[in-house]
């Protein structure tokens, strides 16, 4: 497909969209350019999305493409040149946002001036500042109507840029419970261990469904998110994962190979002072409180 015909197609689609300010569905697009195969169509739409000409909406389960509101552009109208430059930089950055230092660098504006411009743009609700999860001090700017990228917002695990470790803990526990419910299926299964093993495995999708049905999560968790949680179980040593022939990941709860060893059954094994504990001196086994408490229990 040459560039020229590419442009022609884009134009046709754009025209169709212009005529339907409420948005057009994929079917409408196909009707506007009937000569394209579905793969080519997807490519063409993706390109337009990339150029930022389209917005994507989810309406009643079907996707709608809507020509981008020109408001943002108009809001800029009446702004001075500096604002325009800064706006363009921020727009370019998309939903990954742009760091203030990079703006300064590339716009060649002085610090104070830049702050003023940003303030004013923020005031007009054209742009917003978003805190970055992996660097607490770092703020990035992006257009007001954009949803921050996962790398910036951290996805489901972050609320206002704070990592929600309790939420993760709860999910971790719930996932484990789900896996444990079926873990015993492998033991002495009358239909043999392979069937038993299959029964004790759970796919990530099953776990996701279980978690969703529990209703403990306010945000919608994708299968990917659940896999992240399930992986923490693997690192906890409480589950193992396998891959099914069709490529989907499955998990099953396991127990440690050995019961708690003797080392952790005596106070010294868990004692924070163990490296300071000597035959003589302030900390000695003979007058150890932990020891006597343990022996008297």
């Amino acid at each position: 497909m040459s560039d020229k015909s590419d442009d022609a197609i884009s134009e046709k689609i754009l025209n169709a969209a212009k005529n339907n300010p409420k948005g057009i569905s994929a079917k409408d697009v196909a009707a506007a350019v009937p000569e394209l195969s579905s793969a080519e169509l997807v490519a063409a739409i993706n390109k337009l999305l990339q150029q930022g000409l389209f917005d994507l909406y989810n309406q009643g389960g079907s996707l709608l493409y809507k020509l981008k509101n020109q408001n943002t552009k108009t809001a800029i109208k009446g702004a001075d040149n500096e604002e325009k430059v800064v706006f363009n930089l921020i727009e370019e950055a998309g939903n990954k946002g742009i760091w203030i230092r990079d703006i300064r660098h590339r716009s060649n504006l002085a610090n104070t001036q830049l702050t003023k411009v940003l303030k004013s743009l923020e005031g007009k609700k054209v742009i917003k500042a978003v805190k970055c999860v992996n660097a607490s001090k770092k703020k990035v700017y992006m257009l007001y109507n954009l949803e921050p990228d996962r790398s910036i917002s951290g996805g489901a695990w972050y609320q206002d840029q704070d990592f929600e470790s309790e939420f993760v803990d709860i999910l971790n526990r719930q996932c484990l419970r789900f896996l444990q419910q079926r873990a015993d299926k492998i033991k002495n299964n009358p239909r043999g261990p392979i069937v038993g093993r299959t029964q004790s495995f759970a796919t990530a999708a099953e776990v996701q469904k279980y978690i969703t049905d529990l209703g403990i999560s306010k945000v919608k968790l994708e299968v990917e998110d659940v896999i992240t949680i399930l992986n923490t179980l693997v690192y906890d040593g409480k589950a193992e994962s396998n891959v099914y022939p069709d490529g989907s990941k499955v998990y099953r709860a396991i127990e440690s190979l050995i019961p708690p060893p003797g080392l952790v059954q005596v106070p010294c094994g868990v004692c924070p002072l163990v490296y300071k504990c000597c035959s003589t001196g302030l900390i000695t086994p003979q007058d150890c409180k932990y020891m006597s408490a343990w022996l008297d229990q």
Partner: peptide, 21 residues
């Protein structure tokens, strides 16, 4: 397995997670 148990009991299950990771 022994090390895992030891880390869990000494430094907590989070540390054990890091250790295994």
């Amino acid at each position: 397995a022994l090390l895992d148990h030891t880390v869990t009991e000494r430094l907590g299950s989070k540390a054990a997670r890091i250790f295994r990771l």
